[in-house]
Design a protein around this nucleic acid. Sequence first.
RNA 1: GACCGGUUCGUCUAGGGGUUAGGACACCGCCCUUUCACGGCGGCAACACGGGUUCAAAUCCCGUACCGGUUACCA
Length: 543
Amino acid sequence: MTVRVRFAPSPTGYLHIGSARTALFNYLYARHVGGKFLLRIEDTDIARSSEESTRSILDGLAWLELDHDEDIVFQSDNAEKHRVTAKKLLAEGKAYRDFTPRVAPSDANVKDAIKERARATQGEKNMRDNPYRELSSEESDARAAAGDPFAIRLKVAETGKTSFEDAVYGLQERRLAETEDLVLLRSDGHPLYNLAVVCDDIEMAITHVIRGQDHLTNTHKQVLIYEALGVTPPTFAHLPLIMAPNKGKLSKRKHGEVVSMTTYRDAGFLAAAFRNFLALLGWSAGEEREIYSLEELIEKFSLEGIHRSNAVFNFTENDPCRWTDDKAQWMNAEYIRMMPVAELLPFVKTELKATKLWREEYEPEGRALTETISSTADAGADERSAGVAIDTPEHGSYDWFVQTINLIRQRFFTLRDFSSHGRAYFSEDYDFDPAAIEKNLSKFPDLKMWLPELADRFDAEFAEESVSSLHVIKGFLPFTEENIETVIKSFAEEKGTKLGVIMNGARTLLTGVAVGPSMLAVFETLGKERSVLRLRSQIAWNS
RNA sequence: GACCGGUUCGUCUAGGGGUUAGGACACCGCCCUUUCACGGCGGCAACACGGGUUCAAAUCCCGUACCGGUUACCA
């Protein structure tokens, strides 16, 4: 029998981190065993469900690239089947009509109210004391025929227990005395969650139910429904929960954006990195290793590797550097600097397009960004060698673009950094970090004279960019790291200043920020003309 | 309250009778260096507590504490 799992979110908001991980684990399990990963939208709570939420959830799954098999099932479409099932159980005497008038749930803190009520009964409540439980079928039929509204409840045996072997938590048992006669069908004919889930899981031929452990008690109820229906229950695997930093519940309402998948997509996270992070929250392959490609996760995933204890998703509210989990941020940075640059390029393109920094020359006709490129742009190329070794490509060209991305990605954390911190590489219109100006320019007033002077020196020493290194006019050096270094060193010597003063001043003026790759590489990457132009610029001094 | 589950560095975790209790993130220090958020090296830091079982317990058993989940005519 082929394995069939499902991810079954209720569309009451965006896809949050916990659901995303549930979806991921279902996906990984299905792919690992060569089964099917199905999607079911549990929209039976009409009041709280929305199409917008459904769309948002689908967006989140699409971003994470968790493709589902077969058509999406909308639970509300199956309501009639659920009703038929409830009535069948009623007819078989496995369920009964409850004519108790419905009490409207208090609107505000439903959870608290329920907890309060449960506490009040001190656990001494007899779950079998419903006055309609033993009503004769004649009387029940008569009242129903007379139009009395009723809910349909499952008739749970007085003694015995439910049990199932959980793939994560092991044998689970619960005395029937702890389980109420659960409602299957509301008095308005609306099927309830546990019935709907069981019916749909049967109909979809689900073999493994992988979901959060907050469903552990529901599972006992569902097992009862399976038994009443005479169907063997699927295998259950309950997942530990993801908690807030205070080990409390991680909620959309309380924690907001930080738990939403779209936040990470919009913040410039790579889906591959976030998936990797998510996979390691509550699961491990038992190795001393952190980075796994999707293929590797699929290959290594197993239900045995799932933990039993909850995991904290760490972040600090009001701290821009710690707005989300440190490890998630690290992992994203790791992916950005280590993944094959050809795979990164399309994401950078999207980012630059969104910020109007993209130029078509970066991707000329007939040349896809994902094409394998020159030797310097291998995966994880060290910045110390990234900018050297080959001829400087023409500024603005495809090769230049690839080389530049490879150079600057070493210190970036998100895709957004390419358009913010890396803006000076793609535009003449970039901002200057006040702290950088303070540290590298203001402290050395001489630089206001020296840097334009250095520009003159560049003009005198270096060939125009259009002149390739093969056709260097005698006396004009190509604008390469090696040559630039020689010129700047002697320049600094002449001025009797430390090399660093010149370098850092130039860095600030040329890139607007105090951090970045080797300054020699920056010069070369920017090219002689831009370097000269920017060295002469006084904008930074005035801003 | 009752039922169920959990507890290894701050966080994610490895380890399931004998380990100097390992790794990652974060933090700190040193090195590299023109800067740095890259890189290299190093450091700080944990078996919740109490009883058993055993020659030996982080590991097995019991209890306690704490944390979490559930307790709806919500999903």
